[in-house]
């Protein structure tokens, strides 16, 4: 039996030899259908013919890929840079996961500190670039902010005074940290440089500082009595160390 789909495929010349022969035999006995099929085949050919000249035209200069790329180069380069930055973060995160999995000999407390440092760095990267809403609750409501975060963390929280380093409290926010909560306090200096103090529950009793540099973000992290702390800023290790020590002094033994 010959169906409409056979006729369409016949018009498009897409049947194999045996099927085409069957369609031709069918059309020989159905002159009206044959006439229609011939007309549609002819119209298909005419359409192709009418568009052949357009296809054969030389491509105008504005459609050359090199020219289109040149016109959009600024945006393009920016996107590539952004993608590269995301890749760096991903690779560092993956490497951290590798260490945390214990596939290389690293003691568990160090892994905990690394994990805190990573959480802090990720939160830093997310919110330090935030212009409209860098913090959830501003420093104007500092008392409310610290009570709220302290309650969610399960530990009293104070905002270390970092004014002698030029940093002033902007405010803070609550963040997810696994199944628990983390708090981020954000500071900025006169030039707009931002620094964060990150706190979350963490097991382990290690108190040594652990330094981590991810791109231009430097972090000191430590564990103290069931909580992990991290101080992150776009700063050198030497610049950041005294600030971390001040934050440590503020929090030590307060949990």
């Amino acid at each position: 039996m010959i169906g409409e789909d056979d006729l369409q495929a016949f018009i498009d010349d897409r049947l194999d030899d045996s099927r085409r022969a069957e369609v031709e035999a069918h059309l020989a006995h159905h002159p009206e259908t044959a006439e229609r099929v011939a007309a549609e085949h002819r119209q298909r050919a005419m359409l192709r013919g009418q568009l052949a000249a357009k296809f054969a035209e030389p491509v105008p200069a504005r459609l050359r890929i090199a020219n289109i790329r040149a016109a959009r180069r600024g945006g393009w380069a920016g996107k590539v840079r952004l993608a590269a930055a995301a890749l760096v973060i991903f690779v560092v995160g993956a490497a951290g996961g590798w260490f945390a999995n214990g596939l290389v000999p690293v003691s568990a407390p160090v892994a905990q500190t690394t994990s805190v440092a990573q959480g802090a760095t990720a939160a830093y990267r997310t919110f330090v670039v935030e212009v409209a809403h860098p913090v959830e609750v501003g420093a104007a409501q500092e008392t409310h902010l610290l009570q709220w975060l302290g309650k969610r963390l399960g530990r009293p929280l104070a905002a270390p005074d970092l004014s002698r380093f030029g940093y002033k409290l902007m405010g803070g926010r609550l963040l997810p940290a696994g199944s628990a909560a983390a708090a981020q306090l954000m500071y900025d200096d006169a030039s707009g440089r931002r620094l964060t103090v990150y706190v979350r529950a963490a097991s382990g009793t290690e108190t040594a500082f652990r330094f981590q540099q991810e791109g231009d973000a430097a972090t000191f992290a430590w564990i103290d009595q069931g909580f992990g702390f991290a101080v992150t800023a776009m700063a050198s290790r030497d610049e950041l160390l005294p600030i971390a020590e001040a934050v440590y002094q503020k929090f030590v033994g307060k949990s």
């Binding site: 568009l51 357009k54 296809f55 054969a56 035209e57 491509v59 459609l63 050359r64 890929i65 090199a66 790329r69």
Partner: peptide
């Protein structure tokens, strides 16, 4: 991309 895209431009224009 240019080497892959440019041969397809005449058909896109058509």
């Amino acid at each position: 991309p240019a080497a892959l895209l440019e041969p397809l431009i005449p058909a896109l224009r058509r």
